[in-house]
């Protein structure tokens, strides 16, 4: 492993300044569960690792009760999200996703921001944030800007972030009433498992508790970046949600996906898993909605 200098700025501005000084040879580090692996393997050889851990505001998890907006600091760990009752109750899709990342040890240090910026097609954390219409708040040398989480990803390991730019937080707009959401990943193991396919579904229904007014179907490992199955979403709008409708949505989503054969799994099986789990997660959403309302 190539030795590096570890810097611990206390503010976003300081971090960006450090990065500016060492631009080519610096890397941000959150929990380090991706970065350190890469440094150890020699895939990444930074001279400076700029830790974002000491920047207080980046570790805040907060819901504005007046506006209903949720703000998740990029440095919030998976464990923090997993243990939050607010997340468990109001954003079950986030809980479903983060509570099955890696292992307890990985979740204790791995952050939601690192999960997004690492930008692998299998990032569990990305799926719920896309389903919830999350917005990424970015801060760089040129100032602040924002982007929908779904538009963050360009390719595996590649995001729209400019060199030195920091993901500060993700904001989630207020949820419509009668919304249910759920995520599952399909893999061979119960822990330490990147998904063979990840499936997140979010449904909002009308007052009849059946008719779909809004749908999000988001897939991991189904394409080079996390993707929304927009045709399947459209299909659901205005339909009374039941098993058959969800089976059809699952088929459409599977057809939309760009799954491939790989040494980890076969495309045909991944498609099957999309079909089955869109249905299952959809039913799960419906159950959650009907339970509360």
């Amino acid at each position: 492993m190539k030795p590096f200098t570890y810097l611990s700025p206390k503010t976003v501005e300081e971090a960006i300044a450090f990065h500016g000084q060492h631009s080519e040879t610096a890397k941000y580090i959150g929990g380090g569960t991706d970065v350190i692996v890469k440094v150890k393997e020699g895939w990444m050889e930074p001279d400076f690792l700029i830790s974002l851990k000491k920047i207080k505001e980046m570790s805040e998890l907060h819901k504005n009760e007046a506006t209903g907006e949720l703000s998740i600091g990029a440095m919030v760990t998976h464990a923090t999200l997993e243990k939050s009752l607010m997340i468990q109750n109001e954003y079950p899709i986030v809980y479903d996703a983060v509570s099955n990342i890696g292992s307890l040890q990985v979740r204790n240090v791995g952050t939601i921001g690192g999960n997004l910026i690492n930008a692998v097609p299998s990032a569990d954390g990305a799926i719920p944030l896309i389903a919830l219409d999350g917005v990424a708040q970015l801060h760089g040398a040129d100032g602040e800007r924002s982007s929908d989480v779904k538009d963050l990803f360009l390719a595996p390991y590649k995001t729209i972030l400019k060199p030195g730019e920091i993901l500060k937080k993700i904001t989630i707009p207020p949820q419509a009433p009668r919304t249910g959401s759920a995520y599952t990943k399909f893999g061979r193991r119960a822990a330490m498992e990147l998904p063979l396919i990840g499936i997140g579904v979010l449904l909002t229904v009308d007052e009849d508790l059946e008719t779909c007014t809004r749908a999000r179907i988001v897939l991991g490992v189904a394409a080079p970046t996390p993707m929304r199955a927009v045709d399947a979403e459209k299909y659901l709008i205005g339909k009374k949600i039941n098993e058959n409708v969800l089976i059809e949505a699952g088929k459409i989503a599977a057809d939309e996906s760009k799954v491939r054969d790989s040494v980890r799994g076969k495309a045909w099986h991944r498609k099957e898993m999309i079909r089955v789990h869109v249905k299952r997660m959809g039913l799960n959403c419906l159950k959650k909605i009907q339970k509360i309302n």
């Binding site: 193991r189 822990a191 330490m192 990147l194 040494v263 980890r264």
Partner: peptide, 16 residues
């Protein structure tokens, strides 16, 4: 060998 790591070599974990 295409899976020379514990991510892709599916050794049972404690949870399994």
């Amino acid at each position: 060998i295409m899976n020379a790591n514990f991510r892709d070599y599916k050794l049972f974990t404690a949870k399994d």
